[in-house]
Design a protein around this nucleic acid. Structure first.
Lengths: 256, 256
DNA sequence: TAGTGGTCTAGACCACCAA
DNA sequence: TGGTGGTCTAGACCACTAC
C-alpha cells in the first residue's frame, strides 16, 4: 500500500501529468491484485500527504478511476475498490423474456418495481403502439437484478387493451401476456450505446457517464399487431448480446 | 450570450452546486438553439469573470458537457458547441460489409488505414481463428468514415492462408475475400457497450469515456472454417443496430 | 463528534495554436 | 507572440456517515 503512494518516482522524465501518473499506479495495483475488490483506499487528504500532491490532484486521479468503474466513492465513508461484475451473454436471435433468459442459465431474478400503472400516452408511445385518440397505455418500469446485482432498467409500454391491469404483473410480463394469448412472436430491436445519465446510473449502481446498451424493442403478434414497446438500458459492463448473422440474399447484396 | 453568463440568478435557494447550475444554463442554451453547433464559447477566464465564479468551477461545468459530447475543447483554440451527428441504422440480421452497407444508403465511405501487415498472433487470435503453432495472422486496422465523419474503428484478424497479402486490401475486405472464394456466409457477433479509452476516443473524434458499441465478430465459411475475427468499436452516438427476433422454438423456450 | 468526500476560490505556470 | 485550454497548488467550508 505504501509503495503505491510513495512520493518517489513522480514526475520522472516526461511521464505525463501527475494525476495520470497516480491514476496509473492505482489502476496497476487494482489490476495486479495488490488492491482487491472491497478494499478501501486511504482518505484523499492522506493520499495527498503521502504522495506529496495536492488534494485536488489526487481527486482528479481518483475521478477517472471512478468514471471507469474501478473505484467507488461514498461520501462520509471512503473510497473503495469496486466489486467485479460477471459478464453475461444473451443470444439475441431468440425472442425471450429476461426472466426466462436468466432462469435458463440458473440465475435468480429480482424485479424492483419503479412504477406500474395506466397513463396517458406520450407521442412516441402513440407512434410505436399505433394507438388511437383517447387510448391509454399501461406502463411498467422496473430495475432487473440477478443475484442482487442490478443489470438493466426496463420501461415497457403496452396498450391497455393488451394489459388492462399492469399492477398484476409480477415476475414475468411475457408470462402474463402468454396467459392472455398476447405473447409476441416477433420483435424488432434497435441497439445503440449511450452514456448513462444521473438517474439511470444510480439505478444501475454505476458511475454517471458509464456506457450502457440502449435497446428499443417493438413486439408483434402473429397477425402483425403491435403488443409491446419496451425501452431498456443494460449495464455495458455486465452484458453481452450475441447475434448470429447469415449471408444476405443475392438480390439484397448486389443492390448498389 | 450575455444572459447565459450573467452573474444574477446563481445560488438561489438550493439550486445545487454552482458548477451544475452553470452547466444547466449552457446545456439549455444549446438545446434551445441560442448556441448553435460550431459556435464558440467565451474563453474560460472570461466565463469565470462574467459569472463571478472561479475558473476551476467553470472548467468543471464545461467538463461535464464535453463528456456528454455537447461541447468540444481545443487546446490553444477555444471551446465550441459540438456538431450534431446523424444516427445511422444497420440491419443486424444480414451479414454485410461496412462498405456495402454504406453504399446501400448512398453514403460515401472512406477508410483511414492505421496498419496492414502480417504479425505473430496474439493468444485470442489463436483461439478465435483456430491457428496452429507457427501460423501467422494478417491484421487490418482502420478507421471507417462516412461523409468525413469517423464512425467506427475496425480491427480484423485473418489467417495468412486466407489473406496472404493484407497490404493489397483497399476499400472492402469482403470484396477481396469474395474474389478468393473466402467470403464468410455466417457469422456470430457479440455486442456490448464500453466507455472509450483515450486512443479510441481520439480516433473517433469523441471525448474520452464516451459510450461506444463494441462488436466482436467471427465469420465462417460454408464448411465451418473460421475466416475472420474482427473487433470493432462504433460510436454510440452515431450508430443504431436493428435486429429482428423470432420466437424461440418450444423446446428451447420451455427448457428451465 | 470526528472523519469522509463534495464544492469552491485565487493565483500560478505550462503546452499548444493561430496570426 | 498573445491567447487558449491543461495542470497544479494551498486552503477553506459544507454535507454526509459512522460511531
Amino acid at each position: 500500500m505504501d509503495r503505491i503512494f510513495a512520493p518517489e518516482g513522480f514526475d520522472e522524465a516526461g511521464a505525463g501529468p501527475l494525476y495520470l501518473q497516480l491514476q496509473r499506479r492505482i489502476a496497476e495495483a487494482v489490476a495486479s491484485g495488490r488492491l482487491r475488490p472491497g478494499d478501501s483506499l486511504p482518505p484523499e487528504r492522506d493520499m495527498a500527504a503521502l504522495t506529496g500532491l495536492s488534494r485536488v490532484t489526487v481527486r482528479k486521479a481518483v475521478e477517472g478511476l471512478v468514471g471507469s468503474g474501478q473505484l467507488v466513492q461514498k461520501r462520509g465513508s471512503g473510497t473503495f475498490v469496486a466489486q467485479r461484475v460477471e459478464r453475461l451473454e444473451q443470444a439475441l436471435s431468440l425472442l425471450t423474456s429476461f426472466t426466462e433468459d436468466m432462469a435458463r442459465r440458473g440465475k435468480s431474478v429480482e424485479s424492483v418495481w419503479l412504477s406500474r400503472g395506466v397513463h396517458s400516452p406520450a407521442p412516441e408511445e402513440v407512434m410505436a403502439l399505433g394507438l388511437g385518440a383517447g387510448d391509454r397505455v399501461a406502463r411498467l418500469e422496473r430495475v432487473r437484478r440477478s443475484d442482487g446485482v442490478p443489470l438493466a432498467i426496463e420501461r415497457a409500454s403496452l396498450s391497455v387493451q393488451v394489459l388492462p391491469e399492469p399492477e398484476k404483473v409480477e415476475a414475468s410480463l411475457y408470462a402474463v401476456l402468454e396467459a392472455r394469448a398476447m405473447r409476441p412472436v416477433r420483435a424488432v430491436q434497435r441497439i445503440s450505446a449511450a452514456n448513462l445519465g444521473a438517474r439511470d446510473a444510480e439505478l444501475l449502481g454505476v458511475p454517471v457517464g458509464a456506457a450502457g446498451l440502449r435497446i428499443e424493442r417493438i413486439g408483434y403478434l402473429p397477425d402483425g399487431r403491435v403488443v409491446e414497446f419496451t425501452r431498456s438500458l443494460y449495464r455495458g459492463d455486465a452484458y453481452d448480446f450475441a447475434v448470429e448473422l447469415k449471408l444476405a440474399p443475392e438480390t439484397e447484396r448486389k443492390d448498389p
